[in-house]
Structure formats: structure tokens, C-alpha cells
């Protein structure tokens, strides 16, 4: 600031034709410029460029969890130091308690983002009812992103495998119990999605089917996020032997990695088609919504069961393959 209180620019002193400072002495003579330079942290810039490089790499590797973490770091989005609420005493089991503690520290920016995803999902579902079937993809993506945001306790467990593997509980059981608190946290977002749908449709006839279908759809849609988080987790059932995936298969694996979670979310969103069909043929929309809700709940339960049993299934499969290899070796040696 100068004497009149106006901000002083770096180039307010003597400059050459290109508008640059004449020499370092001009800079040194300007205390405001020196102060400004002192506030410009080269460390922060270097850190940012390093984060961007990592982000590019993570995008190339289609590693969604890393992309999300790096985006949060770039945006300086930190967990709240002071939680929105204390964990109620009646939540007695340590894993849901840990989940509530996590959700209670969501930063405002994440809550705003989640609200937007939920509202958009509702709007897209209303568009499907009105006949724009491809809007299902929009709903699926919104619910998938909502799932990735809300499943923070699960993601944290997946991010810290050393800590997980020190706890006296099987990993599948631990991970599935981490779904409880985020599932409860999704209730208000299901309400937001429902309001989004009803407002877009502009008719009170939509209230009952929406009330029935909103929460199951949001839960099952968010299960797509769960699939993505758990599939990206380090695999504790892997032995030291490196799995050699041929390049031809790598493309399929990558496509599955991205596509399967979205497919799960899309299946959840597709339950709205039952209601649309009922509207078209003049049967009960409420009945169709109930059938859709049951389907969505079954889908969410199936994903939960997969999370619970995945490690066991993979271990059994590896054992089966290993036994087969041993048997083949034995047969060859006897020939």
C-alpha cells in the first residue's frame, strides 16, 4: 500500500519497455514487492505441480480413488477439525461409531457437492419418466459419484491396508460394516433426490412412487461407488507371485474396472422404468414403485454380500488354480 492507501503493484516503480522491472535494486527498494514475493510460496507451487503430475498418472491408470484424493488435495479440501455433531452414545458398535465420526467431519464443500449430485439424480429420473431414457446414464453417474463421496469410512479403510490388517476382524466383515453409517447418511440425500424429481415432474401424483423408490434407488446407486472402491483395494489374498495379465486382457480388465461400478448404478436407476411402464399402460404406479424398490434393495444387498465374501471367493479361486497347477506338474513328472 502507498501513503494514500492504494495497492502498489510490482511494476509501479521504474520499468523498461517490456514492462519489466529495470533491475533487482528496484525490487529491493520496494518493500511491498518484497513482502508480496515472500508470500508466494515456491514450495506450494512445486507441490501443486507434483499433485497435477500424479493426477495425470492416476487418470491414465483409471484409478478413481487416487484421482478423487488428489483433486481434494489440489482444492485444499480437508476433513473438518470440529465435527458437525458428536457420535450419539446409542451407537455402540465400534465400526458404525467410526463411520458416524467420519461422516460428521465431511467438509461443507463435499456436502454441497453431494447435494448437487442427489438433486441432479432426481432431475434425471424425472426426465426418464417423461420419456428421455438415456437420462438413466446421467442418474447412474450422479449416484455413482454420490457413492464415492459418502463412502469415506470404507475408502479410508481401503487406503490404510496396514491398519486394516492389524485389526482383529476379517477384512470382508470390517468393510461391510463400514457401509452402515454412510447408508444412513444417504437418507437426506434421497429426500433431496426425491424433491428434485417431484419438482421437475410438477405433479403431486409423483409423490407416492417417489417416496417409495427414492431411498432404495439412492442406496443401490451408491453401491456402484462401493464396487469401485473395493475393486481398487489392494488384494490381501494375492501371494508374492505376480499375476501376469496378457496385454489383450488388460483392456478388458480396465473396461470392467470402470464399467462395472457404473453398470451397478445404472441398474439401480433403471428401476424407474417400471414406474414409467406402469404409467404408460395405466396400471398402479405405486405397485411398480414397490417392485422397483425391492429390486433396488436386493441389488444393494447383493453388493454388500459381495463385499463380505469377496476375499474368501478370491482365496478359494487361487487355491483351486494352485492345486490345478500342482496336479498338472505332478502328472507331467510321472510321464
Amino acid at each position: 500500500m502507498d501513503e494514500s492507501g492504494e495497492p502498489v503493484s510490482l511494476t509501479s516503480k521504474a520499468t523498461n519497455r517490456e514492462g519489466q522491472l529495470d533491475d533487482a535494486s528496484d525490487l529491493a527498494a520496494n518493500p511491498d514487492a518484497v513482502a508480496l514475493l515472500q508470500r508466494t510460496s515456491l514450495d506450494a507451487l512445486a507441490r501443486r505441480s507434483s499433485l497435477v503430475a500424479q493426477l495425470r498418472f492416476a487418470v491414465t491408470m483409471q484409478d478413481l480413488r487416487t484421482v478423487i484424493l488428489l483433486r481434494r488435495q489440489l482444492n485444499q479440501e480437508h476433513t473438518r477439525g470440529r465435527p458437525w455433531l458428536r457420535v450419539p452414545r446409542w451407537v455402540t458398535h465400534p465400526i458404525p461409531r467410526r463411520g458416524v465420526a467420519s461422516v460428521a467431519r465431511f467438509p461443507t464443500s463435499r456436502l454441497v457437492r453431494m447435494t448437487a449430485f442427489a438433486a441432479m439424480a432426481g432431475v434425471f429420473q424425472a426426465m426418464v419418466i417423461r420419456g428421455t431414457t438415456p437420462a438413466l446414464i446421467g442418474t447412474a453417474i450422479m449416484l455413482f459419484l454420490l457413492g464415492l463421496e459418502v463412502m469415506e469410512p470404507l475408502s479410508q479403510e481401503v487406503d490404510q491396508p496396514d491398519r486394516t490388517d492389524s485389526l482383529p476382524i476379517e477384512r470382508g466383515e470390517l468393510l461391510v460394516r463400514h457401509l452402515v453409517a454412510p447408508a444412513v447418511a444417504l437418507i437426506p440425500f434421497a429426500v433431496i433426490a426425491g424433491i428434485g424429481a417431484i419438482v421437475t415432474l410438477g405433479t403431486t401424483r409423483a409423490i407416492t412412487p417417489t417416496a417409495i423408490l427414492a431411498l432404495p434407488t439412492v442406496l443401490a446407486g451408491a453401491a456402484g461407488g462401493v464396487v469401485s472402491i473395493v475393486r481398487d483395494a489392494p488384494d490381501p489374498t494375492k501371494t508374492g507371485a505376480q499375476a501376469f495379465v496378457p496385454p489383450e486382457m488388460a483392456g478388458v480388465t480396465s473396461a470392467l474396472r470402470i464399467g462395472l461400478p457404473i453398470f451397478v448404478s445404472a441398474l439401480a436407476a433403471a428401476t424407474i422404468l417400471l414406474v414409467r411402464q406402469a404409467e404408460r399402460v395405466g396400471t398402479s404406479a405405486t405397485g411398480a414403485a414397490i417392485r422397483g424398490a425391492i429390486g433396488a434393495v436386493l441389488l444393494a444387498a447383493a453388493v454388500g454380500y459381495w463385499v463380505r465374501r469377496r476375499d474368501q471367493w478370491k482365496r478359494k479361486f487361487r487355491q483351486f488354480m494352485s492345486d490345478g497347477q500342482s496336479y498338472t506338474k505332478q502328472q507331467r513328472s510321472t510321464l
Binding site: P94, R98, A101, L167, P168
Partner: peptide, 23 residues
């Protein structure tokens, strides 16, 4: 461990509660 890891979404007290109660 010499390089301890922590959950990014829990306070130290919440870490202690989680670990102790699971045990």
C-alpha cells in the same frame, strides 16, 4: 511401525476408541 499410518477422517481420540473397542 516406523512409518505409522492413520485414518484421515478421525481424530486421535476416535482412533484410540476404534482400536481399543475392536479389541
Amino acid at each position: 511401525s516406523d512409518t505409522p499410518t492413520f485414518y484421515e477422517d478421525l481424530s486421535l481420540w476416535e482412533h484410540l476408541e476404534f482400536v481399543a473397542r475392536l479389541h
